[in-house]
Design a protein around this nucleic acid. Sequence first.
DNA 1: TGATGCGGCTGATTCGATTCAGCAGTGGTA
DNA 2: TACCACTGCTGAATCGAATCAGCCGCATCA
Lengths: 329, 329
Amino acid sequence: MLADVAAEAGVSATTASYILNGRADEMRIAPATVTKVQAAVADLGYRPNRSARSLRTRRTATVGLVSDQIAGEQYGSSMLTGASLAARELDHLVVMGESGGDPELERLLIEEMLERDVDGVVYATRTARTVHLPEGLRGVRSVLLNCEDPDERLPSVVPDDEGGGRAAVATLLAAGARDVWVVGEDPVPEATAGPRRMAGIRAELATHDLDVAGLVRCDWSVTEGFEATSRWLADGGRADGLVCMNDRLAMGVYQALAEHGLRVPDDVSVVSFDGSALAGWLRPVLTSVELPFTELGALAVRRLLDPDDHVGTDSVPMRVRPGGSVRPV
Amino acid sequence: MLADVAAEAGVSATTASYILNGRADEMRIAPATVTKVQAAVADLGYRPNRSARSLRTRRTATVGLVSDQIAGEQYGSSMLTGASLAARELDHLVVMGESGGDPELERLLIEEMLERDVDGVVYATRTARTVHLPEGLRGVRSVLLNCEDPDERLPSVVPDDEGGGRAAVATLLAAGARDVWVVGEDPVPEATAGPRRMAGIRAELATHDLDVAGLVRCDWSVTEGFEATSRWLADGGRADGLVCMNDRLAMGVYQALAEHGLRVPDDVSVVSFDGSALAGWLRPVLTSVELPFTELGALAVRRLLDPDDHVGTDSVPMRVRPGGSVRPV
DNA sequence: TGATGCGGCTGATTCGATTCAGCAGTGGTA
DNA sequence: TACCACTGCTGAATCGAATCAGCCGCATCA
């Protein structure tokens, strides 16, 4: 403990504490004393006791991360990677908990984190959406990750889905597509990804005096993507560009196109959203607008620990990950 | 704080503490007193300060989970879900850190966890393999998750890959397959999944006086699966049952089979390992032997916190998740 | 010569719980 | 009547750091 270090160095615990906390200059500790203490620290392999420190300072160098399901989510789990790395860079650790969507469990997790005096809480959701800040986080320093609360003035970190929508369409337009259909409709009312992407899609088309040629309605699963697209094709549906709302859906679209003898990208160009590993596994590789999950997680933690605490939403750009599903011009 | 509760209830902090720690009976506290204290707790919304408690007890009701990459891993991240849920059930929280495979970062993470007096550490790897216990964990209560250290006597939790191999083959044999090829070779020397699955595969075939008909060599990626299988087929390779070492690989195999006009399961039955979401997205749905990631994570935490600390490996069964890729008999 | 300032350090208190040792009061027993 | 056991509770020490207020000695200055 610190007292041992102090004894070994022949100074008081107070002095040792100042030195270890980088307050040597401020406290005008003689350089020789600093050296002695540092030697003692190295000598004894001193490791501070965080519980003791936290008891006094009320800070734990620990951030909480509560989510519904992000570890279970295929790609979204990278938010944890980002959060963990960013936390380390700022000398913090991440305490995580998953509620699985159960509000009672969520309450418990938040409660336990607050008992442990986390320095702040990141509240994350699997899918981009609006939420209500849980009661337990009222008054607690917190950042929303992949979600926003329109009723609260809070820092929030989300992907720029509208920009992503524009980028997706820009890719198709650049390849000469003019007859652009959108596949997929956001199934959840609170979800923000679908509407925002759609806004971007329309905005970009508008720059060429175009609009969405049509919408193939289905949820965002492989099966629905396959079935809805099959029906559409069977009804004579045709397009030169398809925007799929996510990669899984696009996989179903690929299957449907193949069954109807249409080739990607020769007969139709396809772009999608997610930039998941799946996009890279499809043949041809699916051009997809990437959800920057790692970056989102990292940014959320940085904003949480950032001393100048500005509220408002950070939209992280979504970049096109080029594949072979868009016909080269 | 506790003193407030005690004051409100008209007792000493000592008494209040005993009651809150469930030692009322042992300390012969009168039932009326217990009631008074509980009322005060509810009244004041008392929430214990864990740092203070930890300072005395040296326990934090917190477990560390260090891994190379499990959050970034598609399916493996469910280990975090399982760990988080099991921890909650045992009134603990999970402190997580990802090293990305960097030994220095790993050392730092472990160091930071120990400073925070975690009650134990789960050391997890993305892929099932053998490892050397990191120096920093020597003498620390720890459990290996998805890995084993042959040189140490430690509790360890891994999937039963050998049993999985047997189950995969049993499924094929039950469907009448006799000419069984294996696709995929484990690319990493320390990896345990491949050899164990192979052992199970051979063992089960042996019960029918059979052996593996042949091996299509490739690593476990979609592309390699596609290319190696294509070459094999082009060389006249045929089989009535294929065991793929994982689902991604199987996806490549599907692609190759399709290009050669072979239909699953009519021309060839396919089983695989992982039981990932991808298996469910393929057409036909891929029959796959599931890696029980959530259970693995949960079990690791339970063993870590289990008071009777037995060393040795727990192998969690891998179950077949039936799809449509095995021809019904 | 006495007041003032400053460099360099330390003693004592505090954070909020846990826990050991022990203390009144009561009733039973020899 | 003296002793003991038991019930029901409490005072004080303790965990390991952070931090405030202040102390001592020496140089400076009016």
